[in-house]
């Protein structure tokens, strides 16, 4: 099946099996090595990517759902300006995810930060996430390298940087 989509800001034409999961496409067809998924059934949470700015488990997205979508892997995300908000939050709080889940947890944080922006911009289906939601969502990745306090501290710090970025822009 031929599929046109945008991966890490590059327009790509893929020729893959229609039911192939996105994590395998990224690993095998595009050789993006920062996906550490091991479980093959959506339980480890290590294969998170942003699909149209929302975090998804790439092992649960089949190739035929990729037509015309915009995918950002951690590799591509590191080249965006938003990455610096989280990078600085990690450094400010002195806590960061372990190398194994770094990419996935960072992208989940990013999708939560996007929710704040959407909710502040006006009526949206997304509400600003509360602390319980933040911890629960990060828990999608089963690695226990960050505790709840650290997760909240990182998020709050990154959210402050993100809000400042918005203020500067307007």
């Amino acid at each position: 099946m031929k599929i046109e989509c945008t991966i890490d800001n590059k327009h790509i034409l893929l020729n893959v099996n229609s039911n192939k999961p996105l994590n395998l496409i990224l690993l095998e067809d595009l050789e993006i090595n920062q996906i550490y998924s091991r479980c093959r059934d959506g339980n480890c949470g290590n294969c998170v990517v942003l699909l149209n700015d929302e975090a998804v488990l790439s092992c649960l997205i089949p190739a035929f759902r990729l037509k015309g979508v915009r995918i950002l892997t951690f590799e591509g995300y590191q080249k965006s300006r938003f990455w610096h908000d989280l990078e600085r939050a990690y450094s400010d709080t002195g806590s960061h995810p372990c190398p194994h889940c770094y990419a996935s947890k960072t992208l989940i944080f990013e999708s939560l930060l996007q929710m704040i922006i959407k909710s502040e911009l006006g009526p949206s289906q997304d509400e600003e996430p509360d602390e319980e939601v933040i911890v629960q969502e990060i828990g999608l990745n089963t690695c226990a390298c960050l505790d709840a306090h650290e997760i909240i501290a990182i998020f709050n710090s990154a959210a402050t940087y993100r809000r400042r970025r918005r203020v500067r822009r307007y």
Partner: peptide, 27 residues
């Protein structure tokens, strides 16, 4: 019939398999 796909794709034998049935996507 393919709805969200979360159940189908979380099966261990989902991919690769020789018994791939055609898909009707409901999205």
């Amino acid at each position: 019939f393919w709805a969200g796909g979360t159940f189908i794709m979380s099966r261990n034998d989902y991919y690769p398999t020789r018994e791939s049935k055609d898909i009707i996507s409901l999205s």
